[in-house]
Simulated scan of single mutants.
Amino acid sequence: MQNDPSEETPSKSFLGLQRDDQFFLGLLFIAILVLAVVHLARLSRWGTEPVEIERQKQLPYEYQIDINQATWVEFAQLNRIGPILGKKIVAHRETHGPFRSIDDLLEVKGIGPKILNENRIHLKPVTPDSD
């Protein structure tokens, strides 16, 4: 009975897996490893060339605001005038009446000649009301 051909010797198991299962897991591991390497190569942009993009020259802003009609939000869009200074301009206009000229903005605390000259192209000249 020792040499009974009907009795098969059990295949060696590794981690409780049969030989066929070990082979399948080995192939699965290799496939995952290959896909991971391909994914890393794509992430590193290996094998690609940089593309130069021609951009148009940036155009300057061309707009003007009426200093007697503008809101603080419109003033805040100007160079070196933020929301706080924009609100000060509107408060000054509401307290002292409409501005007679662009230079009257110098009366607002926080606006000096440098800021005014920098933004002069964006300010419409004051025209007298025709009543």
Rank of each mutant, 00 (worst) to 15 (best):
Q18N: 13
Q58F: 04
G47L: 02
V38N: 05
H96S: 12
G86D: 01
T48I: 07
I115G: 06
I111L: 05
H122R: 07
S13K: 14
S130N: 14
M1G: 13
I121P: 13
Q18T: 14
P128A: 13
D103T: 07
V108C: 06
I32Q: 10
G97I: 01
I89C: 01
E118N: 10
K12W: 09
S11Q: 11
G26S: 06
N79L: 06
Q2I: 14
A70R: 01
I65E: 04
G110S: 03
Q58R: 09
Q64W: 05
L25A: 07
E8Y: 10
P50T: 10
V37H: 04
G26K: 06
Q18W: 05
G82H: 10
G112A: 05
L106G: 06
G47D: 06
I84S: 15
K114S: 10
E54V: 12
S6N: 15
D21V: 05
L116N: 04
I81S: 04
F14E: 11
P125D: 15
L40G: 12
G86N: 10
N117I: 04
G112F: 07
N79K: 14
I84R: 13
A36N: 05
R93L: 01
N3A: 12
K57W: 05
T95H: 08
N68M: 02
V90Q: 04
L106M: 07
